[in-house]
């Protein structure tokens, strides 16, 4: 194999990996949007069918820079759940919502793999909220940070 041919193969493989990286980025982006949409739809359904007393709404936020890990998305690492309660939520109420999300290891791992690093819970009336580092609740031993 000549030197030029080897160079061509190397260039092609690096271009191919670049293209596949872009494709992965778009796939991740659509998967993140789908997860947020599913969450909001389910929250709306349970609120309409009066299972839930408050309407929850989920969105993507910047996240906490101290909670970043190897898979964190730049400027979009926060999974924010807002409770449309109309009154300031008590800390215990926010903790109970967070505990349900954090106790679901499959969900936490999925959130981490899709680039989220912070779970944020807050209400729409008060000024307080809570933040959790998702990686601490994934049940994985080892470092990826």
């Amino acid at each position: 194999m000549g030197k030029t041919q080897r160079f061509k193969i190397k260039t092609f493989s690096s271009m191919w990996s670049f293209v596949s990286n872009i494709q992965d980025w778009f796939n991740d982006f659509s998967e993140r949007r789908r997860l947020v949409r599913n969450f909001n739809l389910s929250a709306r359904d349970s609120f309409v069918s009066s299972i839930a007393p408050t309407l929850l709404e989920c969105s993507i936020s910047m996240g906490e820079s101290a909670y970043k890990h190897a898979f964190s998305k730049f400027m979009a690492g926060g999974f924010r759940i807002k409770a449309l309660s109309g009154r300031p939520l008590k800390r215990q109420e926010m903790v109970s919502i967070a505990e349900v999300v954090l106790s679901n290891q499959e969900l936490v791992r999925k959130l981490i793999s899709l680039g989220w690093d912070t779970l944020e819970i807050h209400d729409n009336a008060g000024y307080n909220g809570i933040k959790y580092k998702l990686y601490d609740h994934s049940g994985i031993s080892g470092m990826i940070g």
């Binding site: 991740d28 998967e31 997860l35 599913n38 969450f39 739809l41 389910s42 929250a43 359904d45 349970s46 299972i51 839930a52 007393p53 929850l56 898979f71 109970s96 919502i97 349900v100 999300v101 106790s103 679901n104 499959e106 969900l107 791992r109 999925k110 981490i112 793999s113 899709l114 994934s138 994985i140 990826i144």
Partner: peptide, 19 residues
């Protein structure tokens, strides 16, 4: 971690867990 990227999560179950 990357394995769990493809897993599907039923959000209705999560809502039931919360409420």
């Amino acid at each position: 971690i990357l394995k769990s990227k493809g897993s599907s999560i039923n959000m209705a179950d999560v809502m039931n867990d919360i409420n």
